[in-house]
Structures are given as C-alpha cells and as structure tokens.
C-alpha cells in the first residue's frame, strides 16, 4: 500500500506538473493539457511503430513537436485573449477537444496503440513486487522536479519565469517580456506533459478517452495543491495517490475517483486557493 501509494502519487505529480508550470507563470489554465498528453503519446507511437525510429528519438521528436504546438497555441490564439480568463479556458478546452477528436477520427481507437515498456520485469520492494517501469516513473519524476528547480533558480530564463510569476508588470519594467515568457511557459508545460505521457502510457494503451481523464486528474491535483504552487502539486499528488490506494484497500475500489474529486470540492470549500496556493489568499482573509 505504501509503495503503490507513492508510485501513484508520482504519476499524479507528473501528470499535473506541466499544467501547474504553465498556470504558475502565464496564469493560463491550459485545458488542452489532456489533448497534448495523448498527442504526445500518439506521435511517439507513430514514429516508433510506423516510421521505425528508435524509441528515444521518437520520444524526443514528440516532445519537441508538442512543445512547438504549445508555443503556437499561445502565439496564435492566447496572445489575443490575455487577461480574459474565461476566454482562455474555453479556447484551450476547444483546442484539446479538437486534438483528441481529430486523433479519434484519424483512427486512434482500439487496443493496439501501446508504447512498449522501457524495461520488462519486476522487483520486490519491502516484499511487494513492483514493475520496473513504475520504478522508472518515480526516478523520472524526481529527476524532472530537480531539473525544474535548477532551471527556475539558476538560469536566466528560469529567473524570468519567476519574475513574471511574481509580478508581471514589475518584470516588464526590468526588461522581461511577459508574452515571450508566457509563450515559453506554455511550450515547456506542453513538453513536460509529453515527457510524462512517454513514461506513463506504456503502463496501458493509448486512448483518446484518457485525454479527458488526464485533464480532470491534473485539475484535481492543482486545485488541491494550489494552482501555481509546485510544492502544492507534489503534496496534493501524494495525498490523492495515498487516498486512492487506501480507499481501494479499505473502503471500495469503485470510490477511488470519487474520493479524489470529493477532496477537490472539499478544498475548494475550505481553502479556495488550495493547500499551498496564494492567488486568492488575501481575498480569503478579507
């Protein structure tokens, strides 16, 4: 239970990280997140199976392509809607649906679309057999978090990210272009989304319906943790991961998703900013 709760928590964190980064910097709630996730998986599968490219190269190409698409979404659509939050949500949601339904109409249905496991087999952890792919996911999750920490704290672009995230107008006054930073945040968020897809999707098959589930899960994690808080996202991921396993073990597996979504509603009621969110904290105090 401890082991699988931890693994599930890491999977949630990976799924939500891209969404959180984008929102944290640009304040764009990217509802195309699920669409980009499946698109990344589908592109990797296509390059690997249909074009016969090596796995690593297929994954890199998918990450770059979807990263470019994320930037394009910002440059073509979102730049005109900056500040209109509802319009941003509707637009990105529409983009997500277009991506997913296009993939479906192009034939992405059925059970044959599957990315192979990186390493086959399983090992025992505290007496519990765990698939090696799941261990890889945990390692990748930790590595990605460390890389992101180093990026935002020790690179010029990362510091610009933090500047825009903290106060956009002040950042502008010191020569940081918020539009460029937001474009980059959407692009990087999309890339992280595909990285998570490449590691998580081999556990099952690639399905369009997963795109909608991924968006809901990312939203649940971000709302519980605090939309713009990376620490919050990590904490919320493990909370949901463990709640799910505990629910499945001691209550009923049919309530696993209900409990996760109910937690989101509960947090919205008692602390609308999320556990570590700050965006509405002052309003809440008032």
């Amino acid at each position: 239970m401890l082991v699988y709760g931890f693994i599930n928590g890491t999977i949630y964190a990976l799924i939500a990280l891209g969404f959180s980064i984008t929102f944290g910097v640009s304040r764009v709630a990217n509802f195309a997140h699920g669409g980009l996730y499946i698109l990344g998986g589908a592109l990797t599968w296509y390059s690997l199976v249909k074009l016969g490219l090596p796995y690593f190269l297929s994954a890199i190409l998918a990450v770059v392509a979807v990263g470019f698409l994320g930037a394009l979404i910002y440059r073509v659509l979102l730049i005109r809607l900056r500040g209109l939050e509802l319009s941003e949500v509707i637009t990105t949601f529409a983009v997500g649906i277009v991506i997913l339904e296009l993939l479906r109409s192009m034939g992405l249905m059925g059970y044959e679309y599957r990315l192979p496991l990186f390493v086959e087999g399983s090992v025992d952890i505290f007496g519990v057999p765990v698939g090696i792919q799941r261990i890889i996911i945990v390692v990748v999750g930790a590595a990605l978090l460390l890389a992101l920490y180093l990026f935002v704290h020790h690179t010029k672009v990362g510091l610009a990210f933090r500047g825009v995230a903290q106060e956009e107008h002040t950042a502008l006054s010191v020569g940081i272009n918020p539009d460029r930073v937001s474009l980059l945040s959407l692009s990087i968020g999309s890339m992280i989304c595909v990285i998570s897809a490449v590691f998580i999707l081999p556990l099952g098959t690639i399905s369009v319906d997963d795109g909608y589930d991924v968006l809901i899960k990312a939203l649940a994690v971000c709302i519980i943790g605090g939309l713009e808080s990376t620490i919050g996202v990590i904490a919320a991921s493990f909370i949901i991961g463990y709640i799910e396993v505990l629910t499945a073990t001691y209550i009923s597996s049919s309530y696993t998703m209900v409990v996760a979504l109910a937690s989101m509603l509960f947090i919205l009621l008692v602390k609308p900013s999320g556990l570590f969110g700050k965006s509405k904290e002052i309003e809440e105090r008032v």
Partner: peptide, 17 residues
C-alpha cells in the same frame, strides 16, 4: 469482489488482496 470506475489505472490493491 472489487469494482473499478471506468478510467481507473491502478489495480495493485486488488492484486495484493
């Protein structure tokens, strides 16, 4: 006897039980 909602992606608790 376990029931999983559509979309569930972890069945480890059932397998362990």
């Amino acid at each position: 006897y376990d029931k999983y909602p559509t979309g569930a992606s972890d069945f480890s608790s059932t397998m362990m039980k």
